[in-house]
Design a protein around this nucleic acid. Structure first.
Lengths: 188, 188
DNA sequence: GCCGGTGATGTCATCAGGTGACATCACCCT
DNA sequence: AGGGTGATGTCACCTGATGACATCACCGGC
């Protein structure tokens, strides 16, 4: 398209991840990332809304994927089962490369701003999924409760999956965690 | 203490809330807040770590309160019941002034940065509570799952409470929501 | 009653994140 | 060949945030 090396986005993404990992998020300046990617700082902000977004720009695809999976769930499925289907789809996409997930998580967990961003992405997904549940005729509060709970399950499962010594399938960990939740709530 | 009017913190807090409500968070500059409070911008940052924190600085007290409530729960209580006790304590503190909660929520929901901060405060509380559960001998994953789920319940209940036409007791709404969660997970 | 310590504040300088406006240049299409 | 298009560079600027240092009222001891 332009006179420059193509793939500025990917180069910026890689440069940012590498630098965030090497010296930490705060210690990395946008100018550094841009320089390593061979562009100017202004160009960085044309590709990513802010310094954090470079680690989260896959979230919208993930959101679409999860919505599709939820919509594909049978109409007879319970609210929680529909959410489980969505989580399964997300896990299929995120659970492929555990090594990558681990380093990404290392970077994110090392910085509060990045943790905040991670949380709001999940919250956004929860909101979108809840909206789809409502369109299925599910009660307002019940829809929110189902997706918020589902996201809680995902969060716990994801962390377990990342920190486990053995390499399980993320989808299995999610299923186990969901079963555990059922036991937990039944016990009371 | 000083030669100036005392209570700079509260004045800054009030000024900030008022301005965030009047013209929005982003449109409000720290200099404006400081001016309305009769101090300089530099002083604002001595009282609050950043522009958002002025709306969340009660969180640490809330965290301590919740921990105390959880620790006070009987040793025989289930993980979820202990978390419920903590939520009950939190609700007792934030559930007092619904009008204030509503305006505060209006400000927060109008801005993504503020929503992020809100999320991480709850996540932090979840992490702290999970740690206390672990000290009770509760399994690692189970502890996280219980507190994350509890926070999910709180979030949904809080929103319902704020948007309800009638003025219920937040603690009751939480109890109802928790009961609903049990039904939801049992149904699957 | 004076006197130095203390703590909150003011002042100044500076940096980093982020944005708008405009110029530039390769590529494509006609 | 020439104009349109889109990505980039360049420049100016604002705002959030922080460090260093000065200042001044209050407090306790002498």
């Amino acid at each position: 398209m332009g006179r420059w090396e193509p793939g500025a986005s990917s180069r910026l993404r890689e440069a940012a991840l590498a630098l965030y990992l090497e010296r930490g998020f705060e210690q990395t300046m946008v100018a550094d990332i841009a320089e390593r990617a061979g562009v100017t700082a202004r160009t960085f902000f044309r590709h990513f809304a802010d310094k954090r977004e470079v680690l989260f720009d896959g979230a919208s695809e993930l959101e679409e994927l999860s919505v599709a999976a939820l919509d594909a769930a049978p109409a007879t499925a319970s609210a929680l089962d529909a959410v489980a289907a969505a989580l399964d789809a997300v896990a299929g996409m995120v659970g492929g490369d555990r090594e990558f997930a681990r380093t990404r998580q290392t970077v994110i967990m090392a910085n509060a701003d990045l943790r905040e961003r991670e949380l709001i992405k999940l919250a956004s997904m929860s909101a979108v999924l809840a909206d789809r549940l409502r369109r299925r005729g599910i009660d307002d509060a019940e829809a929110s409760l189902a997706t918020e709970t589902g996201v809680a399950v995902f969060r716990v499962a994801y962390e377990r999956w990342i920190n486990a010594t053995e390499d399980h399938d993320l989808r299995d960990v999610i299923r186990e965690t969901l079963a555990r939740l059922r036991a937990l709530t039944a016990a009371g």
